[in-house]
Write a protein that binds this DNA or RNA. Structure first.
Lengths: 145, 145
DNA sequence: GTAGATATGTCAATATAGCTGACCCAAAAC
DNA sequence: GTTTTGGGTCAGCTATATTGACATATCTAC
């Protein structure tokens, strides 16, 4: 064991605090834009995942969000009413609903993303490439623990 | 410009998704313990910050949490009633209230932390020391952007 | 010493995002 | 043809946040 300071409790406590700040700040940035559309962070997360995994089913979205279907349904209803997303019957299994952003949804996502991107982009631009790659590696390990 | 793939939009979108997962998982772990005490994540965050910055004032806690004083007050009231924290008048400026965990609060924090620590500890133990150091560097940059 | 600013506390109403539990329908699997 | 799965919905509740108004104690500046 050399300088494994970061395994000390105090350092880990700091990390726990910082992960909270990083999440909060990253998801705070686009709140003004969301408000224009009467959407909140719940809608944002759904839109983000739909953009990243176009055509995903309701149950796939549920397992990524880890919320109840009743909670998700309110969000999806809002997005459908707003003509931000559309649901299509699954071709293989027509019980499934595949979720897609339509044109309006894609534009909204881009508007949100443009705002949210800045923070991450600047942080990475001011880091060396090795740091960013290792940041991702550790982040993934935290998620998959 | 070499292989700055991580500055591409798609990669940044992935990071935004992963920061959400990392936060959610990190703060989900101790929820069962919190429930035993009828506390939620709002109480958890307050307890965490009080432990990390013992004797901090109400307004310092507010600016770290970035919530309204009305929201914080409900949380602090619960914690006081539960004899988890105590508030003391500031010695220099007696308008201030300095917040401290008492014995019960310290025990509760340790119980929560023990559960929450595992995820981070294991992720770091399975990473090399350079990765963890760079993880922290980038995390800080994201926060301070 | 008084006026104004600051730190904190509190009441009331509202919004957002989640939960549990019950029940429904359509389609697939057996 | 019965059971299971994927999805939708109603109703009521909880947790956490908000806005706005107002109260009190203490400090600062004049």
């Amino acid at each position: 064991m050399r300088d494994l300071l970061y395994l000390k409790d105090d350092q880990i406590k700091d990390f726990i605090e910082e992960i909270f700040y990083a999440y909060r700040e990253t998801y705070s940035d686009p709140k003004k834009i969301l408000k224009k559309y009467s959407f909140g962070t719940a809608h944002h997360r759904a839109i983000h995942l739909i953009e990243r995994h176009e055509g995903l089913t309701v149950s796939e979205l549920l397992s990524r969000l880890k919320i109840t279907k009743q909670s998700l349904n309110r969000v999806l209803r809002d997005l459908i009413n707003n003509k931000t997303i559309i649901l299509k019957k699954g071709e293989v299994d027509s019980r499934h609903r595949q979720i897609f952003l339509n044109e309006k949804g894609k534009k909204l996502f881009e508007e949100i993303f443009l705002e949210q991107k800045k923070r991450i982009y600047n942080a990475f631009k001011n880091s060396d490439s090795d740091s960013v790659i290792k940041f991702k590696k550790v982040l993934k390990k935290i998620i998959n623990e």
